[in-house]
Every structure is written in C-alpha cells, then in structure tokens.
C-alpha cells in the first residue's frame, strides 16, 4: 500500500521522475504516451457504453439499467486512473533502465467486460422469452 501512495505522489511530482536515471530515447517515451492514449480511449469507450446503456435500453427495469450503467462508468473512471498510473510507472522504469512494470489490470478489466456482456446476453434472451 505504501508503494501505491509513493506512485500516487509521483503523479503530481514530475520533477522527481525527471531527476531519476537518464532520459530514454524519445521514441520510447512516445510509445508509452500512445499506450496511455489507448487506455484512455478504452476508458472513454466504457464511459460511452455506460451512457448508451442508460439511454438506449428503456425497456430494462430501472435498477438493472442504472446498475449496469453505473458499473460501466465506474470501470471507465478506474481505467483512466490506471492509465495515468501505468504511464508514470513505465516512464520511471524506462528512466531507471528497469523492466517495465507488470499489471493484473488487463485481466481484471477483461473479466469485468465479459461479465457485463454475459449479463446483456442473459437479459436479451430472457427479454425475448418473456414476450
């Protein structure tokens, strides 16, 4: 946990990242930036999915609809926070010449998305059966 707090401090202290190690080849920094942007787009897609569930599925019960939408929005928020965190950690690792940090987040996110997709399948199938 203290490790997490330390990385959190790095978010707001660019000087401390810059003081460490040597500046890597700018191409590596740009690749790291593109990865950050790709994660940010994933986060935006999750937020957009949440909006779409809230707007375009009026037949669902209120609780289910709002629950699904809020879950997607929360996943979007988590994903964008994690994007910044991972970007900072990769930047620091490259400056120090260490291995890039590993992460469980992609696995967790894909499980969550699979869960949402399964819920939607079940809802659609039962929705048709109920008609």
């Amino acid at each position: 946990m203290s490790d997490f707090v330390q990385t959190l401090r790095l978010w707001f202290a660019p000087q401390r990242v810059r003081d460490e190690g040597e500046t890597p080849d700018y191409r590596f920094s740009l690749a790291n930036e593109r990865t950050f942007l790709a994660w940010l787009r994933t986060a935006l897609a999750l937020v957009g999915g949440g909006f779409a569930v809230a707007q375009f599925l009026p037949d669902l019960r209120w609780g289910v609809r709002v629950g699904l939408a809020l879950a997607l929005l929360a996943a979007g928020v988590l994903c964008s926070l994690r994007a910044v965190n991972h970007w900072v950690r990769c930047e620091r690792a490259m400056r120090r010449g260490e291995d890039l940090p590993g992460s469980r987040f992609p696995a967790v996110l894909s499980l969550a998305v699979a869960g949402v997709a399964l819920t939607m399948v079940v809802l659609v199938v039962f929705g048709w059966a109920g008609r």
């Binding site: 978010w11 707001f12 990242v17 740009l30 930036e33 940010l40 926070l81 970007w87």
Partner: peptide, 13 residues
C-alpha cells in the same frame, strides 16, 4: 519532441 507532461496526462484523464 519532449515526453508528455504530467499536467497534460492528468488533465486528459
């Protein structure tokens, strides 16, 4: 080009 600034990354997020 210089690397992305922390402020830029935080603002975008």
């Amino acid at each position: 080009p210089l690397p992305l600034s922390h402020r830029g990354a935080l603002l975008a997020a």
